[in-house]
Amino acid sequence: MRPWIFLIPALLFLSLFLVYPVFDTFVLSLFDKSGSFVGLRNYEWAIADPAFQQATLNNVLWLVLVPALATALGMLIALLADQVWWGNIAKSLVFMPMAISFVGASVIWKFVYDFRPPGSAQVGLLNAAVTALGLPPQAWLTLPMWNSILLMVILIWIQTGFAVVVLAAALRGVPQDTLEAARIDGANPVQVVFRIILPQMGGTVAVVWTTITIITLKVFDTIFAMTNGQWNTEVLANLMFKWMFVNLDYGRASTIAIVIMLAVLPVLVWQVRHAYRQELAK
């Protein structure tokens, strides 16, 4: 009896706020705006809807680029910071954006991307750099493709610090003698990194990668604050928000939520299996 007294508050919260909604969202996705049962028609709608297609395509792009670039940059910075005496300061500064809200980061970067018509002084860093090179300034956030990439930059800017911290800790765990042996065999630093260090860090890289993947999949705040999905920047989480609060269609909003959930599912299964195996070992 005693364990359940300790557990009950947590279990109540988790079942009411997380477990029950998973099932309810699925059920809701089978109903239309007026509350009549429509079977899988919301899913048919989604597949044919251009905005949904655009959002899915963008989410895939985000999922490919953001975790890869944030992890790679994190690895690079962790390795470089290990070589210099001011490495901890460098890591701390790269890590800082982790503390900043996505909306705060959006203001910071919208200021960087600010656009003034040609001829007037540019107050945004990006256009100032572009005009200094003799090129015309651009309203970056309205240029399809460029705008998505520049929005991704914000998330990479935030998440790289996370990658640095986790990878730097794992780097400390790489056995010194393997590095020593490689050096004695005449390997250059690049070879040591790619042949000795990286292969020993596979598990950590996977953890960093999947964690950033999950965060990327749910990206909402930056899109909502910067473009609200205009100029081909739509993503699923923002599209869902629109169906929930602008169109007040809970059925279609739920359908989009289920799609996000399906994308998370492989990671979820992988993690649970891993965790369960660890439990059995304890």
């Binding site: 809701l28 929930m244 809970y250 993690q271 649970v272 965790a275 369960y276």
Partner: peptide, 30 residues
Amino acid sequence: MQFPLRRFLAAAIVALLVVPLQMSLVPLLS
């Protein structure tokens, strides 16, 4: 503490770690 379902609950917590917030919004709002 020792009790049945302990391992199951521990694994369930790990699963809930990655369930997207989006799944909860509509039901809770209603």
